[in-house]
Design a protein around this nucleic acid. Structure first.
Lengths: 152, 152
DNA sequence: TTATTAAAAGACAAAAAGGTCTTTTAATAT
DNA sequence: ATATTAAAAGACCTTTTTGTCTTTTAATAA
């Protein structure tokens, strides 16, 4: 469904926000390890997210990433669009440029329902909402709980 | 959502079946033109589909593609899986390997609903069902109706 | 049987996605 | 000040996806 980059970005941002809520600022090494993503690739992705203003960072000792308080309640959709564009949210299931009510592809109606559901989900959830529900629900962002317990 | 290759394959197969229902066997040139896909790429894709048995073909004069009568009622899902695997149908929204009820990602429940909808759609429709509904509904597989009318 | 038509086969290439690594910059602690 | 820490910048590489093209094979029509 999403690109790997999007998956890593969302997992990482939720992890950052969970840690921020515990007054911690994780660095790339910690984030990459926790979400099971390649270190250098994670670094690059969060560098981009920082440049776009979705996350903030501090260099040097005690540095790391944290969410701009203004950005933590943005719908996931905003982040996803910034990374991979909005094709998933507006596009045709058959990949047609001019697919609409007047000129539908064979899947138009039914695919529309799915697209609506996707839009509803990513518009209704935010990094903050996922971080909060994750903290009460013991949720996984990388290793399975069994694995992360073994590794910790 | 789907890869370009999948989109071209589905559009092309629906077009082929519509033509088959009119006792025609379109060739690559016609298919590629009608679904607005690159000629050589379309050729390669249908070559693969023929090798996998999803379509059949005849060489030489009067040749072209047609659907194996046994295959025209296969769910779209089978074709999609043959082209791009089943990650979309079984995978986690956050891209986790071990995401399940016992070890959910933060989006597990809600993404599950979307994945179920996708599965329902591609399991319930077939090339034949789309071809039949397309013929009564004046549906588009490439150019918008305006464009294809201009071009014809 | 020869010319023509059209798919099959497969080499090649461009672009996008995914990933790695080194060097530079900035912050902090000593 | 300087040593240390950690992100920023950016070069580089690999794989996958998308797309192009030439040559070969097979079918049909004349």
């Amino acid at each position: 469904m999403f690109k790997k980059e999007t998956e890593y970005a969302l997992r990482g941002m939720v992890y950052i926000q969970i840690q921020n809520l515990k007054d911690r600022r994780p660095g790339v090494a910690e984030i990459a390890h926790e979400i099971e993503a390649p270190f250098f690739y994670t670094a690059k992705i969060f560098q981009r997210l920082a440049k776009q203003g979705f996350v903030r960072s501090l260099k040097g000792k005690g540095g790391g990433f944290f969410l701009d308080p203004e950005k933590k309640d943005l719908p996931l959709k905003e982040i996803i669009i910034a990374i991979e564009g909005n094709e998933l949210f507006i596009g045709c299931g058959f990949g047609l440029k001019n697919c609409d009510e007047n000129n539908p592809c064979p899947l138009h109606q039914q695919y529309g329902l799915i697209r609506d559901e996707i839009n509803r989900l990513v518009s209704g959830e935010t990094i903050q909402s996922l971080a909060l529900s994750s903290m009460t629900k013991n949720v996984s962002l990388g290793f399975s709980r069994e694995n992360s317990e073994k590794k910790s």
